[in-house]
């Protein structure tokens, strides 16, 4: 199993995240993809014993995650776990996501804040955005994903192979789900608890949220219209 952590200037939290992974998932390989960071993110990750891929300039979350999937595909990992570098994802929640992927039951397991009441409250705008996107995805694919923007997910070999070759660049979480479902891969959600970020501030402003919704909505629709080559 490979844990992929895309990180852009997360020196304030990456050490704690890696310590937690070492404590609760000591046998997992950990790959930090430093996405053009200008702080000590890469150095701190190396000190903690993680493998580090340093992108020479910022590609964004999609480009950084795809780098991790390429690494996972080359080294034939059976599961690739995406964990955010800001500490929001608790690796103790991983086992229920990992088991169905490792057994081949599903191709992508998503840790969801909304599939049952996990106590997550978050900003109202974010919950409305997730609700709208969830219904948009259902309209486009026929499958309800309650938390389509969740970045806490586990990919199996088929999803890793697909993402290594094709992964959305700008706002990948939602579009990548549609890509998988359209290609006939199985996606399921499991309830997880998520925490507030350990350090730094979210870069998402109200204006960016609107831009996000429009871009993701369009990307999902275009993805739906593409002719699939299987």
């Amino acid at each position: 199993m490979l844990i992929i952590i895309p990180a852009y200037n997360e020196a304030g939290s990456i050490g704690l995240v890696l310590d937690e992974i070492r404590t609760y998932m000591p046998t997992a390989d950990v790959l930090v993809v430093s996405d053009g960071s200008t702080d000590d993110t890469a150095a701190i990750a190396r000190e903690r014993g993680a493998m580090v891929v340093e992108l020479p300039h910022n590609l964004g979350i999609g480009g950084a995650m795809q780098t991790g999937y390429r690494y996972a595909a080359r080294h034939r990992y059976q599961a690739a776990v995406q964990v955010d570098a800001d500490g929001q994802h608790d690796v103790r929640e991983l086992p229920p996501l990992l088991t169905p992927v490792l057994s081949g039951e599903v191709d992508l397991a998503i840790g969801s804040r909304y599939v049952t009441d996990t106590g997550y409250r978050g900003p109202l705008s974010r919950r409305i955005g997730s609700w709208l996107l969830a219904h948009w995805v259902r309209l486009m694919t026929g499958q309800m994903i309650h938390d389509p923007t969740s970045g806490f997910r586990v990919a199996g070999p088929r999803a890793i192979a697909l993402f290594a070759e094709e992964y959305p660049v700008d706002y990948p979480e939602v579009e990548s789900l549609v890509l998988l479902i359209r290609r006939g891969l199985t996606v399921r959600e499991w309830p997880v608890r998520m925490r507030p970020r350990l350090a730094g501030r979210s870069s998402i402003t109200p204006l960016k949220s609107v831009e996000y919704m429009i871009k993701v909505g369009l990307a999902v629709w275009i993805q739906r219209m593409r002719r699939e080559v299987t």
């Binding site: 993809v33 493998m51 580090v52 891929v53 340093e54 992108l55 020479p56 300039h57 590609l59 480009g63 795809q66 780098t67 390429r70 690494y71 080359r74 660049v169």
Partner: peptide, 21 residues
């Protein structure tokens, strides 16, 4: 060109990582 730059950037970073491993 953007797609090519992304691909090249990823390949370069992965090669450097493998060199250091």
């Amino acid at each position: 060109l953007q797609a090519r730059v992304v691909r090249l950037t990823q390949e370069l970073a992965l090669m450097k990582q493998e060199d250091k491993a």
